[in-house]
Design a protein around this nucleic acid. Structure first.
Length: 254
DNA sequence: ATGTCACCTGGTAGGTGA
């Protein structure tokens, strides 16, 4: 099966690109972040006509997530049970026997900001809930926009970014904490091109200069590890007209 | 060169978040 994650930065703008991408990449499940749509405005009809099921969880202006799948998703959960949150950031469901969790992790803005405090609390809540989920679901995939660059090799200029948001020791410790629950970074199971990023700032001609970060990830539970056949970042949609600033990440599991 | 984009409110621009 193929699973994918994509921060689309407004589904209202990017829906045609998502449908085009799904036509070219018929995945079993795709999680979206930053749909930026209230639930009443979600394009269920268009996604259904493309032959997919969908679960969605949105809010006004910011955040918003969705789980698109070929098979019906069961046991759908929205946001983190046990963590009170007024921001729509998580959607989970079981698809073909695999627990699929899509997350739009908080950005955090700056290490000395209130938003960073929120990010740390959110990450603590996520970790506690995931420990439970892993007890119940042997086959589990956590994917999304983590807003964390786990290592220096995930950053185009690690010196300039040292200690900056996405690269702080606190965020990286949380990423390691997720791995310690029994997850593995699917992208790093394989040899990858150097300077592999999943996000490029809209500013500064960053994409053209390949100045980016790898902050979108797919983590698979240990029982799935041996079944992971490939994991790639699909840069093509970043070359579209009016692209999202993020590229999709895709994992293939036998 | 923060060289952008998307959304909001309240307007034909400015603020916010990323």
């Amino acid at each position: 099966m193929k699973l994918a994650t994509w921060n689309v930065n407004s589904l209202a703008v990017r829906l045609p690109q998502v449908l085009d991408w799904l036509a070219a990449n018929p995945v079993d499940a795709l999680v979206l972040q930053e749909t930026k749509l209230t639930d009443d405005k979600f394009p269920t009809l268009e996604i259904g006509q493309a032959g997919y099921q969908v679960q969605w969880f949105g809010q006004k202006t910011y955040n918003g997530v969705a789980l698109i799948s070929k098979s019906v998703a069961t046991g759908v959960v929205k946001n983190i049970p046990g963590f009170a949150d007024d921001q729509a950031r998580v959607i989970a469901g079981t698809v073909d026997g695999v627990r699929v969790i899509g997350g739009y992790f908080p950005n955090g803005q700056a290490p000395d900001s209130e938003k960073f405090v929120y990010k740390m609390g959110w990450l603590n809540g996520l970790r506690a809930w995931l420990a439970d989920e892993l007890k119940q679901h042997e086959k589990l995939v956590l994917m999304g926009d983590f807003n964390i660059a786990p290592e220096d090799r995930d950053v185009y200029d690690p010196v300039a970014w040292a200690g900056q948001i996405h690269c702080t020791p606190e965020e990286r410790a949380h990423f390691q904490g997720l791995l310690e629950l029994g997850l593995v970074d699917a992208f790093r199971l394989f040899e990858q091109p150097p300077k592999s990023w999943s996000w490029w700032d809209y500013r500064n001609l960053a994409f053209r200069k390949n100045q980016g970060l790898r902050i979108d990830h797919i983590l698979v539970s240990n029982p799935l590890r041996a079944s992971v056949e490939a994991c790639i970042i699909d840069k093509l949609p970043r070359k579209n007209e009016r692209p999202s600033d993020h590229a999709p990440v895709v994992v293939t599991i036998t």
